[in-house]
């Protein structure tokens, strides 16, 4: 009787517990998006500079975070930070760090792409009225490229949120982890509990991510 399974969600403290787990998930994503976004803008600007060494290093950083799957990144930091740097962070903070660095890497590429697509004429006429480099970025290039980078940023944010589902793997008590506990604790009474709990988590993720993808589409059209 599948329909009875949904009662599991509303029984006792189950729903508040799930939402509590969701908050942990969201908090990791939120910090990563804000901190990584700011760092990403900074690195993206640096990547438009002529200095070859700087560009090479930042490119390397980006490619590392692109090539290594996020699961592996999480384990790399989770195992290696305590061992080789003697840095014992709680799992949620390790995850926040990984997501922040990942966000910054991907955001830097978006920012760079948008900055270099501002027409050269705009750079010329900024220089022609005597702006220095930081004024040129601040008043001309960054405002003009914001519009270009927003859709991609929205998609990136949605990707970060989706990827927080991996927190489970390094034992952060996130929404999925809580869900597992609920399923296991009620295995006898609700044998189809997994269907409903994972179904609800599926819907929760969808509800959070869908607005960002709508926004991205809308921004792309404008």
């Amino acid at each position: 009787m599948a329909h009875s399974g949904i009662n599991l969600i509303f029984e006792g403290q189950n729903l508040p517990r799930l939402l509590g787990g969701l908050w942990i998930t969201i908090r990791v994503a939120l910090i990563a998006i804000i901190a990584g976004g700011v760092l990403g803008i900074f690195l993206g600007v640096l990547r438009t500079f002529k200095n070859r060494f700087l560009r090479f290093i930042l490119r390397l950083y980006l490619e590392f975070f692109r090539i290594v799957p996020t699961v592996v990144l999480l384990f790399l930091f989770y195992y290696i930070l305590p061992k080789s740097m003697n840095l014992n962070l709680p799992a949620a903070e390790v995850a926040t760090l990984v997501f922040t660095l990942w966000m910054a890497a991907e955001a830097s590429d978006i920012v760079r792409g948008a900055l270099i697509s501002v027409p050269q004429h705009q750079v010329d006429s900024g220089l022609a009225i005597g702006l220095n480099r930081s004024q040129l970025y601040y008043y001309v290039l960054i405002p003009q490229s914001l519009k270009l980078m927003l859709p991609a940023m929205m998609n990136l944010i949605s990707r970060i949120i989706k990827t927080t589902s991996l927190l489970l793997l390094i034992s952060v008590l996130d929404v999925i982890n809580v869900g597992q506990q609920i399923i296991e604790a009620n295995q006898k009474q609700y044998p189809q509990g997994a269907f409903w709990v994972y179904g609800v988590i599926f819907v929760l993720y969808f509800l959070i991510c869908y607005p960002f993808s709508l926004l991205a589409k809308k921004l792309q059209k404008d």
Binding site: D124, G130, Q144
Partner: peptide, 15 residues
């Protein structure tokens, strides 16, 4: 450049 004004073919006002 403050002492040299320049105007371009494509105007290039800042949008």
């Amino acid at each position: 450049r403050q002492k040299i004004g320049m105007v371009f073919q494509s105007y290039d006002l800042f949008p």
